[in-house]
Amino acid sequence: MEVWNYINGHWLTIGNWTLDHLWLIFVSNSIAVLIGVSLGIFIAGKGREEIADTVLYLAGIMMTIPSLALFGLLMPALSAMNLPAIGFLPAVIALILYGQLPILRNTYTAIREVDPAMIEAGRGMGMTPRQILVKIKLPLAVPVIMAGLRNAVVINIGIATIAVFIGARGLGVPIFRGLRTSRMDMIITGAIFVSMLALIADGLLAIAENKLTPEGLKR
């Protein structure tokens, strides 16, 4: 009941937090996709197996570092470079880093695992390496990359909540404030909204993933 009253009285504020949250996710994941996909294509190249292994390993370690600790590591690093150490920027940087592994790894594996017979056929018919990448490898990789993006977005919606600790805005704000001031209505409101956001984003991206899957790959 309390919760309902709180929500009812703060529609606008909650809406703003949601928008802030989404904006943070949108900016960071757009950049994460650009970096992840290009880096994934690069390390999937011939003769780059060792680089690929190192990059993927590093991205894997990245993921294990708790987000609160990563924020803690980023802050002094950013202030040493005279960049804002709290607020939007460190949050975006952290989210880009966390978004890397799923996108990077999925791009890499999808490209590496394209059936060699297809590449052979493409080469035999006179496709240039670029054409093979653009016409065969990438279209086949798109659904897998999308799955990676979906994974990254869901992870980042969670981490963006924690980014409130370093001054970012979003649905973490009511949770954080509620915990500090023992306001249960705020905690519950924040938790419900951020969970719904994650579930809806997951569902929508699943639909997008399905839409982007080439017709011939669907069963």
Binding site: V154, I159, T161, I192
Partner: peptide, 10 residues
Amino acid sequence: TIPSLAVVAI
């Protein structure tokens, strides 16, 4: 899918 902070906070 639910964020860890939400689970903890609740």
